[in-house]
Each structure stands twice: as C-alpha cells, then as structure tokens.
Computed example of a mutant assay.
Amino acid sequence: MDTATTAPKLAMPQPPKHRRVLSEKTRTVAGSLMVLVVFLAAWQWGPGLLGMPEFILPNFTRVLQESVVMWNNSNLLGHFGITALEVVIGFALGSLLGLAVGVALGLSPRAEAMLSPYILALQIAPKVAFAPLFVMWLGYTIYPKILVAVLIVFFPVMINVLSAVRTVDPDMVNLVRTLNATRWQIFHLVEFRSAMPALFSGLRIASTLAVIGVTVGELVGGNKGLGYLLVDGEGQGNTAAVFVAICALTLIGIVTYGAVVWAERRVLHYLPKVNTSTV
C-alpha cells in the first residue's frame, strides 16, 4: 500500500484573522490607488494623444497650475470655505427636518395620509426652479443656497426614516410594553434604534445631494462660493478654472460623505458587519 496516499494531509497553518483582514484592506487600498494613478495619467497625457486643445480639456498639470493662480489671485480658499459652510448647514438642517418629519409620519398613519400628497408634490417640483425665487426673497446671501440644499436633503432622509419606523418589529414593541415601558421608552429603545441604519442610509445619499443643492444656488444667484468661481471661469472661457471648481466641489462632497460613514461606524458599531456598508 502506498503510504503517500494513506498518510493524513497536514493542514497548512493559517495566518491570524487580524492579519488576513489587514492584508485584504491593504490590497483594497493598493487597488484603489492604482485606479487613481491610471486616471490621473490618462488625464495628464490623454488630451495630448487625442489632439484635444486646452480650451476643451486641459491636462492635469494645467489644472494644478490654475489652482495655484486662483489660490493667490481669486481667493480660492475663501470661496471653498463659504461653499463648505453652506453644505454643512444645509445638510444638517435638511437632515434634522427629514428626521423629525419622518418620525412624526411614521408614528401617525393618519398624519402621513393627510400630508404625503403635499410632501410628494414638493419633492416632484424641480429644486432648480426654487433657487431664483429664494434669491429674489433673500438676496445674494448664503441663505438661498442653504434653502435649496435643505429641500434636496430633506426627502431622502425623511422617506428612509418613515419606512424604517413603519417596519419596526411589533413583537419587540409588545415585549417592551410588557415591561411597563412608557411611550417615550418604546420610541427611544425600539423604534428609533431600529430606524438608525435606515437613517444613515438616507444621510449617505443626502451628503452628496447637499453639494448639488448648494452649487445650484450659487450658479443661479451667487457672488461668492465655488459655484460663482465656476460661472466666472465659464464666462472667461477658462476651462481649467472650471475644472478647479469642479474638483473642489467634489472634495467637499467626499469629505461630507466620509464624515457620515465615520459617524455611522461609531454609532452602529454593534451591528453585524453584513448589515453595514464596507464603503
């Protein structure tokens, strides 16, 4: 009998779990950085290879040079700060309003039946159409931009919270009631906690929409902010300046989204990994 075939196979030692996780994260980060390098390389040399003139698609180096010029001469940092402030305020107010209305309608089916047609009509109405009206009412200040952001942020947060509150497990509610819990305790311990994952899902969407709302407001009636720089660059035919404004707006959106993801991981740390996003 061949002993080689009958001898038990020795299992290869497996690395510790934390090392496997670290290795997976390292490969993920390396792959993401590789995609970024390829994208920047294509942006740098692609326009030249395709014969595109600079006024149509400037390369990456030209955009960097223009960002330095705008930093020194056009107060790029000041405009960036104004837009970031408008995004943060609009996102915060819209999220709080959406949370409050979502909870109220989720706990009261009658109120939802009465108000849902009007909320739906407000959502269907194009938000861009409100921007000129807000400018006429409030002037060339930060308030019209914040209001547009609030309108855009409100609906995704509200609908996510409303759906989550409506789908709370009734057995959990009955269990807490048997322990003589008050109405506030039922809401705090069961209904609101059950709605937290859906709330953060809505906040993820809202964090990107807030940048869109502020930008729309600045494009329609702004004399400050990145939207104003974008319009100014367009008026001068300076494509590189337009790209600088777009990149700055994208950076604000990434930071806002990252802040929501960070808060979600801290607040929902008790949930299994399968129920939380890996982004």
Rank of each mutant, 00 (worst) to 15 (best):
Y228M: 11
R27A: 12
E112Y: 08
G78I: 01
Y257K: 03
T239S: 12
V150D: 01
L77D: 02
Y118F: 14
A121S: 14
I252P: 01
V21H: 07
R193V: 02
P16Y: 09
V87S: 12
G51E: 14
V148N: 13
V267P: 00
A41M: 04
V69R: 10
V150Q: 02
G46E: 13
P15C: 12
K17R: 08
G253E: 14
P8F: 05
L138E: 15
G90C: 07
Q236G: 00
A7V: 03
L268G: 01
P16W: 10
F80I: 01
A125F: 15
P13S: 13
E66I: 07
R110K: 03
L97M: 15
H18P: 00
P156G: 14
R265C: 01
G225N: 09
K25L: 14
V135Q: 13
L36M: 12
L271K: 10
T5A: 04
Y270E: 06
W71T: 11
G106P: 00
D169G: 02
V87I: 15
Y228H: 04
R193C: 02
V261K: 03
L226D: 10
T178L: 13
L76T: 02
T239Q: 12
S116K: 05
S194R: 03
L99Y: 00
F154E: 08
V63I: 15
V242K: 09
